[in-house]
Amino acid sequence: AWQGRCIATTKLRLVEFSAFMEHQQDPDTYNKHLFVHIGQSNPTYSDALLESVDVRQIYDKFPEKKGGLKELYEKGPSNAFFLVKFWADLNTTIPDDVRVFYGVTSQYESPDNMTITCSSKVCSFGKQVVEKVETEYARFENGRFVYRIHRSPMCEYLINFIHKLKQLPEKYMMNSVLENFTILQVVTNRDTQELLLCIAYVFEVSTSEHGAQHHTYRLIKD
């Protein structure tokens, strides 16, 4: 049921993704704010299939030269490509001081025991400005292999970007900035170089009182 209903292929599934700030109020109390979040879900066959977006509509929002989205998509497999539109929650009251940790947690699972490489490219006007590459090994849990990148520290570029974004007085100004801010995540099998998942992230600011929201799409090319 995962196929076509969430960020997954037969080889790897994104189980959870969150970017957050966490403030240590005192030795026993932590306040956590999620900027964006994809929670654990268990789709069934009665759930709707993901809508699709033509990958060519977003080529210019991501690197276009060697190793760019176009080249990656042409190499495939095309069923491993997804687009996530996040409505980010910037409505935080956590004070910004030295006791704040900015982090990203993600979790994947697979029927296969692999070593995966996760590349995350932050792009401005479609050009890569910073890249983080992480390698993760499998842990066998409950009959499947789990890959957990736990509390990976957010880079300075992103922390500064969030600070500046929050200072803008109007949401339409934030959305105007976010129109040219994207992130491309590519997960590969380290040993075979096979592409397992490619997720393109685009953003707006949430207007909800209920935290971050998102829509997920399959990337296709008719």
Partner: peptide, 24 residues
């Protein structure tokens, strides 16, 4: 936007792309 760049609003994207989901 850079010169020649098409705004996202003018691209062929699903209607849901512009509709923030309501919390379940």
């Amino acid at each position: 936007l850079r010169q020649g760049q098409v705004p996202m609003r003018k691209r062929q994207l699903p209607a849901s792309f512009w509709e923030e989901p309501r919390p379940v």
